[in-house]
C-alpha cells in the first residue's frame, strides 16, 4: 500500500517566555510513516508528546525540526514548511481531525456542524445534511437535538457530534485524538466500525487511544512515543 504520511526526523519544543524563557523539549527524531488503509496508534504515557505529534501533522502546532510529508494526489506537501493557505487547503480535502473537544460556534445547529466539512468538499447542502443526520443517528445522538446548537449539549453528546463531524468527510488522512474517551460501550463500538470503514476506503489514520480494547481492535501498529523523548527531557 502507498505511503500517505511520513514524519522525517521531526522535533518540537516549547519556549515559555512567561516562565523566564524556559525551554520545554517535547519530542525529537520522530520518524515513522503511515500507509493507506493503515491505522497507527501512538503509545506512551501522558506527556510523552503524542498529542503534540498529532497537532504538528494537522499544522496546529509548529514543527521545529524535520519534515512532515503528506501525499496529495501525485504531489508531496511538507506540512512543516507549508504556507497557512496550503495547510488550510490540506485541512479542507486531505487531513481530517477528530478531537475530544468541540469548539462550538454560536447558533449553528448540530447537523450543520457535522455536515460542514462534507459540504466544504463540494457535496450539496441537502445531501450533506442527510449524511450528517444518518451519522448522528448511528452515534445515538437523540434526533430532537439535531437542529439545536451543541453548546448546551452534555459532554458526551458534544463529543459524539464532533466525532460525526470528523468522520463525515472524505479525507485520505485522519487523525484520531482520543475519539472514544468517556464514550459508553455501544458508542465505542460504533466508532470502531467507523474506523474499520475508513480503513476499507484506504484512509491512513494516526490515533491516540487510551482505551485498551478499542486500541487492540483498530490498531495495525503501535508506535511507542517514548522512543522519541528528547534526551534533554529524559
Amino acid at each position: 500500500m502507498p505511503v500517505r504520511l511520513y514524519l522525517n526526523n521531526v522535533g518540537k519544543s516549547f519556549t515559555m517566555h512567561l516562565q523566564g524563557g524556559s525551554v520545554i523539549p517535547v519530542v525529537e527524531n520522530v520518524d515513522f510513516s503511515v500507509e493507506a488503509g493503515e491505522c497507527v496508534v501512538l503509545g506512551g504515557p501522558s506527556g510523552a508528546g503524542k498529542s503534540s505529534i498529532l497537532k504538528m501533522i494537522y499544522g496546529n502546532y509548529r514543527c521545529d525540526e524535520g519534515q512532515i510529508l503528506v501525499t496529495v494526489d501525485d504531489n508531496i506537501v511538507n506540512v512543516a514548511g507549508a504556507e497557512p493557505r496550503d495547510i488550510l487547503k490540506l485541512r479542507d480535502d486531505t487531513i481530517g481531525y477528530v478531537s475530544q473537544f468541540l469548539r462550538t460556534i454560536p447558533r449553528v445547529s448540530a447537523e450543520e456542524v457535522v455536515a460542514e466539512p462534507l459540504i466544504a468538499q463540494g457535496t450539496s447542502e441537502t445531501e450533506g445534511l442527510e449524511t450528517a443526520r444518518a451519522l448522528l443517528s448511528r452515534l445515538n445522538v437523540p434526533e430532537r437535538l439535531w437542529t439545536l446548537p451543541p453548546a448546551t449539549f452534555s459532554g458526551g453528546e458534544q463529543q459524539r457530534v464532533n466525532i460525526a463531524r470528523g468522520f463525515i468527510a472524505h479525507y485520505p488522512i485522519l487523525l484520531l485524538d482520543e475519539p472514544t474517551a468517556s464514550l459508553d460501550a455501544a458508542n465505542r463500538a460504533v466508532v470502531v466500525r467507523l474506523v474499520e470503514e475508513k480503513k476499507k476506503q484506504g484512509v491512513a489514520m494516526v490515533g491516540i487511544l487510551h482505551d485498551q480494547d478499542v486500541r487492540e481492535e483498530i490498531a495495525d501498529r503501535i508506535i511507542d512515543v517514548t522512543a522519541f523523548r528528547s534526551e534533554a527531557a529524559a
Partner: peptide, 20 residues
C-alpha cells in the same frame, strides 16, 4: 501565521502574554 497555530502554539513572548 495560521490562526489556530499562532493561538495554540504562540512563539513570541508578547503573543504568549496575549494568549495567556
Amino acid at each position: 501565521g495560521l490562526t489556530d497555530q499562532v493561538l495554540d502554539d504562540p512563539r513570541e513572548p508578547y503573543t504568549q502574554l496575549l494568549v495567556s
